[in-house]
């Protein structure tokens, strides 16, 4: 079960380093590394040793993950709940993308220009809208966790990113690998994989 947790977490994160996988799974770093090594021996994950490298799934790993996740969903009998949550998520997703764009870009006379983050009032409004979106996203995470417990990590991860932004580290909205946007995108990827929907 933990093997699927690590495998599937990495699947949704794409390519990343050990620390990020550990943070996302909630396991300790040695524990996570041990699982990754087991998975690598089984040919399901691989480590690319370059400055831009990290851990990622092999094609066999992706196939195994898709199969295991499908089996898990079927066994839980929670397909309707997950599908419903996905529908709600899709309604919120354009808003999240709008907010990320608003964080990075700010139109001047209808023409998008890079947001230089010198207008604290504007950035504050973006943060307020993130908070509002998060309030409406929370029930989605809750329903998903009820349906499949492994979704339980998203709520605290999203909340942590938002809390860091609210504490002044605004880059945690959309500029880091642990940002609200990054976690949100993993949740999106997770829903697609879980429901077997091609991207």
């Amino acid at each position: 079960m933990t093997d699927l947790l690590v495998l599937h977490t990495l699947r949704c994160m794409g390519f990343t380093d050990l620390e990020r996988v550990a943070e996302a799974t909630g396991l300790s770093i040695p524990e996570t590394e041990s699982h990754l090594i087991d998975l690598a021996v089984a040919g399901l994950v691989t480590k690319i040793p370059s400055p831009f490298g990290g851990w990622g799934l092999t094609e066999a790993g992706k196939a195994a993950d898709a199969r295991l996740v499908a089996e898990e969903l079927a066994a839980s009998g929670s397909l309707p709940e997950v599908a419903d949550a996905y529908e709600t998520f899709l309604g919120l997703n354009p808003e999240l993308l709008d907010l990320c764009s608003a964080w990075h870009m700010r139109p001047v006379g209808g023409v998008p220009e890079v947001n230089d983050h010198k207008d604290a009032a504007y950035d504050g409004r973006v943060l307020t809208r993130f908070t509002d979106l998060d309030r409406r996203a929370a029930p989605v995470c809750h329903s998903l966790t009820e349906a499949l417990p492994r979704f339980s990590r998203y709520r605290p991860r999203l909340a942590a990113a938002l809390a860091r932004a609210e504490a002044g580290a605004m880059e945690h909205l959309a500029d880091t690998t642990t940002s609200y946007h990054a976690v949100w995108f993993q949740l999106h990827e997770d829903l697609l994989v879980t429901l077997g929907i091609p991207r």
Binding site: G14, F15, T16, T177, F185
Partner: peptide, 22 residues
Amino acid sequence: ARMAAHGPVILARPHTSPLDMH
């Protein structure tokens, strides 16, 4: 990721997802 070790790269994709992060 491989080519970048030997100089700058422009990534051309139909679209990207988190799987392309590296």
